[in-house]
Computed example of a mutant assay.
Amino acid sequence: MPSPNPAAMDFLLTRRSRPAKTLTGPAPDRDALIPILTAAARSPDHGKLEPWRFVVLEGAALDRLAAAALARGAALGLAPETAEKGRRQFADSPLCVAVVESPKDSPKVPAIEQTYSAGAVCLALLNAALASGWGANWLTGWISEDRSFVETELGLAAHERIAGFLHLGTETVAPPDRPRPDIAAITEWVTA
């Protein structure tokens, strides 16, 4: 017979990301962030490859990245509002954890499984931050796909990519809940 954890299940059934633009300081300090990162690193990882890593962005690093995003957007000829969206992702963030997908060569673990593991780390980090009382949001956007930006500004290797930018801070406003999937419409029961 299973041993349920009703509090954990209630959290999962009611969890809600907080829009990044509604987060402010304070953000978790290093002592508060370590358990969140530790929980995220407990994600499924076939072969124990750790095909991901964390880059914690704070203070002046966020200011530098905001300016670099705006400059990169202009260099790419992006619409000003698109370039600004990339800038604001860093300028408005009290703390950002870049989850970097860093696949490993493996004869047993396909690359797609390593990608899924990196995605699981993002969700686990988001949920661990929320469970710890912080506001949190998982974003990507054009800035995460721009090879020049991620390699030059974040130091990613050619084989790495951003799985997500996780923004953490203090929630200023709780957004209304949004419509959730209709489980009956997306579930098929196969019994034979």
Rank of each mutant, 00 (worst) to 15 (best):
F11M: 13
F11L: 12
L13A: 15
P19N: 10
P19W: 00
P19A: 09
A20P: 00
A20L: 01
T22I: 05
T22C: 10
T24R: 15
P28E: 01
D29C: 03
R30C: 00
A32N: 05
A32K: 12
I34R: 13
P35C: 00
A40D: 09
A40I: 02
S43H: 00
G47V: 03
P51V: 04
P51N: 05
P51S: 12
W52D: 10
F54Y: 15
L57H: 00
A60M: 11
A61R: 15
D63C: 07
A68M: 08
A69L: 11
L70W: 04
L70H: 03
A71I: 04
A71K: 03
A79P: 00
A79W: 02
P80H: 02
E84H: 06
F90M: 01
V99N: 03
P107V: 13
P107A: 14
A111I: 06
T115Q: 11
S117H: 10
G119M: 14
A120E: 14
A120F: 10
L126A: 14
L126S: 14
N127T: 11
A129Y: 06
W134M: 15
G135R: 01
G135L: 02
N137F: 14
W138P: 04
T140C: 07
G141V: 12
S144Q: 06
E145R: 13
R147N: 07
S148I: 07
S148D: 10
F149G: 12
E151W: 10
T152K: 14
E153T: 02
L154R: 03
L154P: 00
L156W: 07
A157C: 10
H159V: 08
E160M: 14
E160K: 13
E160R: 13
R161Y: 05
G164M: 09
F165D: 02
L166V: 15
L166N: 09
L166Q: 11
L166I: 15
H167C: 10
H167T: 13
E171H: 01
E171W: 00
T172I: 04
T172R: 08
T172S: 11
V173S: 15
A174Q: 11
P175R: 12
P176K: 08
D177P: 02
D177A: 12
D177W: 00
R180M: 09
P181W: 11
D182K: 01
A185C: 05
T187M: 03
T187R: 00
W189F: 15
W189T: 15
V190S: 04
T191H: 10
